[in-house]
Design a binder for these strands. Sequence first.
DNA 1: AATGAATGAGGTTTCATTCAT
DNA 2: GATGAATGAAACCTCATTCAT
Lengths: 202, 202, 202, 202
Amino acid sequence: MPQSSDVRTSSREMKREKILRAAIEVFAKRGYFSSRMTDVAHRANVADGTLYLYFDGKEDLLQSIFDHVLTLFIERVQDEVEVVEDPVEKLRLLIRRHLELLGGDPALAQVLQIEIRHSRRFLALATRGKLGEYLNLIRGIIEEGQSLGRFRHDISAGLATQMVFGSVDELVMSWVLQDSAVELESKADPLMALLTDGLVPR
Amino acid sequence: MPQSSDVRTSSREMKREKILRAAIEVFAKRGYFSSRMTDVAHRANVADGTLYLYFDGKEDLLQSIFDHVLTLFIERVQDEVEVVEDPVEKLRLLIRRHLELLGGDPALAQVLQIEIRHSRRFLALATRGKLGEYLNLIRGIIEEGQSLGRFRHDISAGLATQMVFGSVDELVMSWVLQDSAVELESKADPLMALLTDGLVPR
Amino acid sequence: MPQSSDVRTSSREMKREKILRAAIEVFAKRGYFSSRMTDVAHRANVADGTLYLYFDGKEDLLQSIFDHVLTLFIERVQDEVEVVEDPVEKLRLLIRRHLELLGGDPALAQVLQIEIRHSRRFLALATRGKLGEYLNLIRGIIEEGQSLGRFRHDISAGLATQMVFGSVDELVMSWVLQDSAVELESKADPLMALLTDGLVPR
Amino acid sequence: MPQSSDVRTSSREMKREKILRAAIEVFAKRGYFSSRMTDVAHRANVADGTLYLYFDGKEDLLQSIFDHVLTLFIERVQDEVEVVEDPVEKLRLLIRRHLELLGGDPALAQVLQIEIRHSRRFLALATRGKLGEYLNLIRGIIEEGQSLGRFRHDISAGLATQMVFGSVDELVMSWVLQDSAVELESKADPLMALLTDGLVPR
DNA sequence: AATGAATGAGGTTTCATTCAT
DNA sequence: GATGAATGAAACCTCATTCAT
């Protein structure tokens, strides 16, 4: 007798996530190109062929890590910033959550910072997809801040978005590449201060 | 009778650069992993085996693009900023040259932004190598600015360096991925303004 | 439902032997170094990659021919000589079987005499492995014969072993190289006579 | 002004031998197939291309080692056995010289026993060439011995030749593969005794 | 749905040989 | 005669994916 659709869906979803998690760990450890599908299957405790019942292939697996993680993250951050009034504090919160997410999961950070950035096509798609959503979230906060007078009017919101995202991203990148020992989260406030007040003394 | 060492060196160096240029163009067009050594050889007008007289292999070719370009760039920027007094103007010049270099050579930009960032090992090495030199150049300007009172004292020079490099890098990245039509150089001054004055109105 | 272990093992073993046989024939025809793995795969009616599910590579394929054939041969000869009383007759039987095996399978003879003897490392390993077992079998017969008074005491069993094996081996070698037309087996008795009685008339 | 033909020839011959010696050592150390022509050139202190002024290629180099060494050896042994009366002593002398030659030059032994035996074509040619000459020399001694009553009449001279050569060859082979420490020459008399008197006590 | 044995395309690299100097 | 930089053919092996069970 078939299980109820809900249970089946949930069971299917759980196996999907088990595979995704396995892929994150394998990709982080050996790198995307050096990882073999069979490694992912082994770590997920499923047969090689089973991967293809849940994903379209290796590339889709990488893409799905990105989408899955970013979807959850964006949803959560969106919920959290909604209840904050001050756009400056919204931005601070977003940056803090960004650094917490990756600072707390080095394997994920490795995959998102390094492994995923290997093909123009992939990155282009990402930018128009989930990453685009994230950039829009940042941009929305900045534009809201501009209309409320909390951020300067005389700047391009797009450029400011790039500066914010680029700074955070670079912070994570250098943490992944060198000093995973320090706490990434502790950089949130100093970076925020730099972003809001600039390099030049007032 | 052998040619003079100078002539030989120069001839050898010219062929090396011919191959490097061919590699940049091939890698930019088809992506590093999809590019075949034979494509590079064809474009450089040499035999396949000749590549291996000048480089240790495909990976070394990629690495050498990075080193070669960055070496020339760092030398040039170092010379130019030396004759500028104001650290703020030094930073502006560096950012402008960075954006000019890549804005003027989309193939090179593609390779440096995307293709080269495919392996943890590679990036880690790069950071301690030529890229580290570049980051030190930026950091030097910022520290000089701090001691001259042109940049705030109450910030970490390292963090500021990451913000500066991250912002520029993100700018180039988004240009490579989306809107190669606009002039990258035109973003230098607005970005500089953001970096110096911050997001919040004074 | 998986097949019983026996059936699977046997099916796997059969495919292994099919590949080994294909390798013997291909190696015999074109020589080990000129043979391509794809030739072996074609003759075995499997895909190229399948070879690597059963063997570690080309070298392992060659080694495995040696081990497989010698294992079967030694087992068989050991069983047969066991039921013979006279050590002289034991030796005669061993020599006859040796010549029959290779005389009846020119491709195998070609591989064992020629193709397999291409690397010091390989031969050294072989000597300590299966070939060593075979030499020990010969030596055992000679030592038994000495203790029974059927072979002279005043000779080194090791040297005698080398003389016996060397003579047979040379016989096969010259047959492989020149006159595959004659019946190799017919040389067993004359050689045996020479070995037992020596060159000098009594 | 050109040198006299004799001097030139001799100079050319000396360089040829220098290359042959280099090849023997390189082939012995790394194996024929793993040796590169450039290694031989380096060891002989000549340019890569120069090898081809003296030899037709890699295979010819191997063949030439064989021919050169065997030519000298056969000449010498022929001269020496000529002045010996007793065919039994002639054979003993030949065996002793054979073992001395290789026992005194492990690199040469390695090449002649192992590296040279890699292709049917090569060995077939060898057998009809210089090796054939050597086998004929042995056969001549045996036939002479038969006609003088020193060797049994009721044996095939061909078969006896194979037994003699095979025994010696196997002796050298096992020395090359395992116990280069012992003195190969010391095996000459015991082997001779076995060959003449046989395995069975009189 | 799950399995895992089989597939087979595809590319980097080596190295014997050549030939312009 | 000697050089050695350049050539380019050739093949082992990997591994993402499929599909019969």
